[in-house]
Nucleic acid binder design. Structure first.
Lengths: 136, 136
DNA sequence: TGACTATATTCCTAAATAGGAATATAGATT
DNA sequence: AATCTATATTCCTATTTAGGAATATAGTCA
């Protein structure tokens, strides 16, 4: 992956917050909205930016678009993401985002592909209704 | 140092090449011109960009403006510069730049503050004329 | 002081980026 | 088919970024 593309993706604080959250688990747009407190349009555009440069992938799950980091990123992307993680460890903004993520993880029911690391988890869950999803 | 500022500096290939060269030693504009094969104006503007965001410092030495990386960079800058070095190790463009640097190092005489790592080396040299400088 | 060297800055044009408002698209439900 | 939910895209405005041409600024030298 082109280094310049990597840094183009990194040079915006909203995108850094998105990447921080995705480092924990796949998520969809409404999760980002809830955690980052930004508009759906803004989130959507930044995700498109990251997707266009090959930094994230998206899979549709019914109505939801579930974004995630690449399973096997290029070495330079992997090392830069690690470096980024080290740098933001002590930044309260990013820490607060992770706290919010932990919160909504407990209460959110759909989509299945969000919050989980692998497709194995996905198959483990049925279609059973649970608490509530963020938006409805 | 603000992370976004770091990545703003990194998201241009010319600036990455400049940073790569500065990781070796302080240099002035004409050195960059010779190695990168870009115009004086372009080099000068990118250096101003890096300087404005606190990534490099400049010291005037007679007619020459000698640029260098900060002696004690912020931790996040330091780790990102290290990460960058790891990433560009195998990139032929950056390797070629370093080869050219080694070449002109042997033949260039001024300014004293370029090419050397510390002020100690600077005091070691006198004002004695030597071969030739790049531009004259 | 004028000429020269080295480099920064201004002016201009063009492209990229960012975000809000509005709207289009796609899947699910009734 | 209509309605709803979730999200992408278009239109618009504004700012940032990039680079060439021209020019301004500053130190050195004769």
């Amino acid at each position: 992956m082109d280094l310049v593309h990597i840094y183009q993706c990194f040079c915006d604080r909203t995108r850094l917050r998105i990447l921080n959250l995705l480092s924990q688990s796949p998520l969809c747009v409404c999760h980002f909205q809830a955690i980052l407190g930004e508009s759906q349009v803004k989130i959507s555009k930044h995700l498109a930016y990251l997707r266009d440069r090959g930094m994230v992938k998206v899979e549709r799950d019914q109505n939801w678009m579930v974004y995630s980091l690449l399973g096997k990123p290029a070495p330079e992307l992997e090392s830069n993401l690690k470096c980024l993680q080290d740098c933001i460890q002590s930044d309260p903004l990013f820490a607060r985002d992770l706290g919010k993520l932990a919160s909504i993880r407990k209460s959110c029911c759909e989509p299945r592909t969000a919050f989980h690391e692998s497709d194995r988890d996905r198959r483990r869950y049925g279609k059973a209704k649970r608490p509530f999803h963020l938006r409805s």
